[in-house]
Design a binder for these strands. Sequence first.
DNA 1: TATTGTTATACTCTATAACTATA
DNA 2: TATAGTTATAGAGTATAACAATA
Lengths: 145, 145
Amino acid sequence: MTPLSGYVGYALRRAQGAIFADFNHTLAELNLRPGQFAVLVLIDQNPGTSQSSVSAALGIQKANFVATIADLEDRGLVRRRKSESDGRTYSLSLTPRGRATLQHAAELQSLHEARVIAQIGSEGRLQLLNLLDRLARLPGSSPLK
Amino acid sequence: MTPLSGYVGYALRRAQGAIFADFNHTLAELNLRPGQFAVLVLIDQNPGTSQSSVSAALGIQKANFVATIADLEDRGLVRRRKSESDGRTYSLSLTPRGRATLQHAAELQSLHEARVIAQIGSEGRLQLLNLLDRLARLPGSSPLK
DNA sequence: TATTGTTATACTCTATAACTATA
DNA sequence: TATAGTTATAGAGTATAACAATA
């Protein structure tokens, strides 16, 4: 059957399915899905940050972030400490085990990214990142209210 | 907070979120989501096709296609006829209303695609389609067999 | 035996509303 | 009032296993 072509949305869905499948397969031994990996990276880069900040940076609802952060805390990868300056917020940081896991994950992730480069080339990857970044800035793409 | 950058998978997720939100907003009056639009396009291009063929072409499980096709049939957009040559399959086609809806949807979709072009340019869009198509062919990611 | 369509089930991601405690 | 975190809920999307009817 003639495949659909010429639809950016459809092409994005198919590509993301392939990329996420490869990512999940590559990091299967760590039991880390793409979103969890992203959370670890952000906390590592912004130690002491809050749940609201991380969820906002990832473009997800803070309500949907509760289960994710609880899981990472239960697994001993993230530490949540009550902030002293603001009783409403938790201060997030990686545990030593979280840092070790992130380092291992980053190595596996680079294998995944290498497969991307093998598929579309280094130059193609940079073009792609640039195009996707501009697409993500489409007007009205924030959650509809 | 410093955004994540340099991860193709993350950039894909953000871009797809923006694109799907824009698509859904653009076709809201028809109550057609991206997957449903794709089904109408495929049936229109392949009248008489089967549920298995369409679901395989879209890279989804045939089990998950049952609810989708039932909804489109209930809305009077798709007709399912028992095949005479093979008692197991249904022959799918668009109803007149389905064709009219698809035509209207295609017009709205082109407005959506125009916004994509406004964001990344005609040339950028073609580059993107090419890159995404190659990414979808990552080894081990093929729902198509 | 294999395939088509189906049911049932479960898991992930996402969206919204409403609540609490703090500010 | 406004914000951080939470709970509850609902809707899509996707994956697998098993089944009846048909090939």
